[in-house]
Simulated assay, not measured.
Amino acid sequence: MSMANPDDAGVFDLRECAHRPPIQVGDKWSGAVLRCLEGGPHRFTELKARLLGVSPKVLAETLRAMERDRWLTRTDRGGNPPHVEYALTDTGRSLIAVLDTACAWTRAHYPA
């Protein structure tokens, strides 16, 4: 995963490497969503702003699949407009170490 701009910490732009990801967890966007939620819960619009190039439809499908796989929880806080937050479960949080290992491997071997 590449950062869109070094000044935009936590903004992911997968468009340039999407055609050849070295390692993939879940679907194309799951690893980036895990990274976004690593620091705590986020609303849909916050996730969308940090994930450049993902459509709302694809992000919604990714979040549903990750909830189904018990990697994250979806909490409806009610209100008008609706306030829904996504947060990692213990299972989802356990994947962070896997991502760290995969990222280290990629940095060491990707040029090859």
Rank of each mutant, 00 (worst) to 15 (best):
T101V: 12
Y110I: 04
M66C: 07
V25N: 00
L99S: 05
R107C: 00
C17Q: 07
K57P: 00
R77C: 11
D27R: 10
V58M: 12
R64G: 04
D13C: 07
L99P: 02
L14T: 01
S94L: 11
G39H: 09
I96M: 14
R93K: 15
P22T: 00
T106N: 03
G53C: 13
A104N: 03
W29G: 02
K57F: 09
E61T: 09
C103R: 03
P111E: 05
P111A: 07
G78H: 09
P21V: 05
R35H: 06
N5P: 03
D90P: 09
S30E: 02
V25T: 04
W29Q: 00
R64T: 07
A18K: 08
M1L: 15
D90C: 06
R107I: 01
C17V: 11
P82M: 05
E67V: 11
C17N: 12
L52S: 14
T73H: 06
C17F: 10
S2L: 15
E61H: 15
Y86Q: 05
A87W: 03
C17D: 06
E46S: 10
E46Q: 15
G92S: 10
A49T: 13
R35T: 02
H19P: 00
E38F: 08
M3S: 13
T89F: 13
E46W: 05
G53W: 03
I23F: 10
R15E: 03
F12K: 01
F44W: 10
D7S: 08
W71N: 01
P82S: 14
A18C: 10
R74T: 14
L95N: 04
V84R: 11
N80C: 08
K28W: 03
M66K: 00
T62P: 02
R20F: 05
G26Q: 00
G10V: 02
L37D: 05
L14I: 06
T89Y: 09
F44A: 09
V33L: 04
R35Y: 04
C36H: 02
R70H: 14
A87R: 12
S30D: 14
I96S: 05
T75R: 10
M3V: 15
S55F: 11
V25S: 00
Y86N: 03
D76A: 11
E85C: 10
E38G: 04
L72P: 06
A9I: 12
N80G: 06
D8G: 03
L99A: 02
F44R: 09
P82E: 12
E61D: 15
L99V: 06
R74V: 12
F12H: 09
A9H: 08
G10W: 00
R77I: 10
D27P: 03
A18F: 04
V58H: 10
G39N: 12
